[in-house]
Design a protein around this nucleic acid. Structure first.
Lengths: 147, 147
DNA sequence: TCCCCTAACTTGACTAGTCAAATGATAAAG
DNA sequence: CTTTATCATTTGACTAGTCAAGTTAGGGGA
């Protein structure tokens, strides 16, 4: 009955694992009053600030609309400010966000790493990283197959 | 500035890739009038039908509430039926869903596989699969670190 | 100066999901 | 033969995101 390809099994594992670990990360980040998505966005802003919404949207791979809605929420919580510089809005972190990230970042990175550190050797992690990098890069220039 | 661990880099790649490929899969499945999430649920029902909502929720790693909402949508589209057998509702596919899956399944599996077939050798895929399996299994019995 | 184009952003209507409180329905106890 | 537990399921209020249509505002022409 199951004539699954190896690729489709990998796909399933990736989806289930990212789902799972994303939820666990949400749970973990509750202690900092953040969600995984918020942490991700704030980190990108921290690294690249000041930047425009379009640039940010690209970094976290969501649409314009998606980033707009996210930023409304983050602004309401007092994590970011958007000022209308010239004709584009540029985003930067508030002190509140900076200080939360100072505490949250090391813990969150350690938490993420623990998924791999607990079960893989350093070489295995290196292998996994390089395989995933190739796959990810490839997917970014992939075309949809014709109808 | 970047003292990222290898693990956190892997995490990022996994998240970005699954995001990306999920969106591409949604795009691809438009030709069958399905989303990736719907395809996933229908496939699980096909394999295990008849089953209860709780069982299904577990298979696709969503909460009870999540599966309830999803099934309402699928029922409205005429893909599934829920009958009250004894005391639990059991879910099964309609003929409509069966025939769509007959067409969609081989194509979707091929589509998923192409992400890996295009860039990895058979051995590399085997390696990736076994690494991901270990990581996934480990994450399922992982505890949240203490506050 | 007025109008129109374009780029950046917002918004309406949806899918997909979470958590926690509310319902339903059967089984077991008084 | 009601009452109470104990399950499964639903639902209200959110977050997070999509797509496509709608705003907004500076720069150029004419």
């Amino acid at each position: 009955m199951r004539e699954n390809t190896l690729g489709s099994l990998i796909w399933l594992r990736l989806m289930r694992f990212t789902n799972q670990s994303n939820q666990m990360s949400n749970d973990f980040l509750k202690r900092f009053d953040l969600t995984t998505a918020q942490f991700d966005v704030l980190m990108q802003v921290r690294i690249y600030q000041p930047l425009t919404q379009m640039e940010l949207a690209e970094k976290v791979t969501v649409t314009q609309g998606g980033i707009s809605r996210m930023l409304v929420r983050l602004e309401k919580e007092g994590y970011i400010v958007r000022k209308l510089d010239w004709k584009t809005k540029t985003i930067s972190l508030t002190d509140k966000a900076e200080s939360i990230l100072d505490r949250a970042m090391p813990e969150q990175l350690a938490f993420q790493s623990s998924f791999f550190d607990d079960v893989l050797s350093a070489e295995e992690q290196q292998t996994l990283y390089s395989l995933m990098t190739r796959i990810h890069k490839h997917s970014q220039k992939k075309e949809l197959p014709p109808e």
